[in-house]
Design a binder for these strands. Structure first.
Lengths: 114, 114
DNA sequence: CTGAATTGCGCAATGA
DNA sequence: GTCATTGCGCAATTCA
């Protein structure tokens, strides 16, 4: 029953002191509430800051990847060019390279390491 | 110093209405408040999700950088090794490389573009 | 000027 | 028993 009238008040001396400790209790709680709310807002703000930070880091990393990929591509081209001139020669580490060279100019998709 | 000691009662013939339109106005406002709070919470939740997403993207990117850097280092070593065997030969693009090769095995620190 | 949206605040129920 | 958290309504203020 979502939309209904708020009905939660009233009544007299139920489980409470008349107004001696009651007031004190209320005041204490009000303070607690205030504290709690301040804390809550701080947390929210921090989260927002976190988002900003992360977005920045992210941008930096993306640029890094871009640069590295570019360089890698460049070197690979050189390798290939060289290989074309010395197809027969095995002066290099060998054929395995050919594999690697064609593999990934844009970085692996999988994240397997080791 | 805005609030002294939360004290904002008040009374009197201010904005007229006794309790006819008053109640209606209150109810409307209460609904508005509810709406507003729901929206607020959604926004908060979204922000939290955003943090999670960004952290993931970030991790992926970091791994990518790591992998690429590693590969790049590998290729560069090969280059150097090869160069050692053919110091005199200029079959490659040339000396400019030497520069690049020593430059960055960990990606540029600066983020200047164009 | 009008009505909705937001915000600070206190109350009471409930959670630790 | 105490403090913390949360839903809720009131009233003031800000937005549209």
């Amino acid at each position: 029953m979502p939309p209904r009238k708020g009905r939660v008040k009233k009544e007299g001396p139920e489980s409470g002191e008349d107004s001696d400790e009651y007031r004190k209790k209320r005041d204490r709680n009000n303070l607690a509430v205030k504290r709690s709310r301040v804390k809550s807002k701080q947390k929210t703000q921090e989260t927002l800051n976190r988002v900003t930070m992360l977005r920045n880091e992210n941008t930096v990393l993306e640029e890094k990847v871009k640069t590295l990929t570019k360089e890698l591509g460049f070197l690979k081209e050189l390798f290939i060019a060289h290989a074309a001139n010395n197809v027969d020669s095995s002066k290099f580490e060998g054929v395995d390279l050919q594999r690697l060279l064609e593999e990934d100019t844009s970085a692996e998709t999988s994240g397997d390491n080791k």
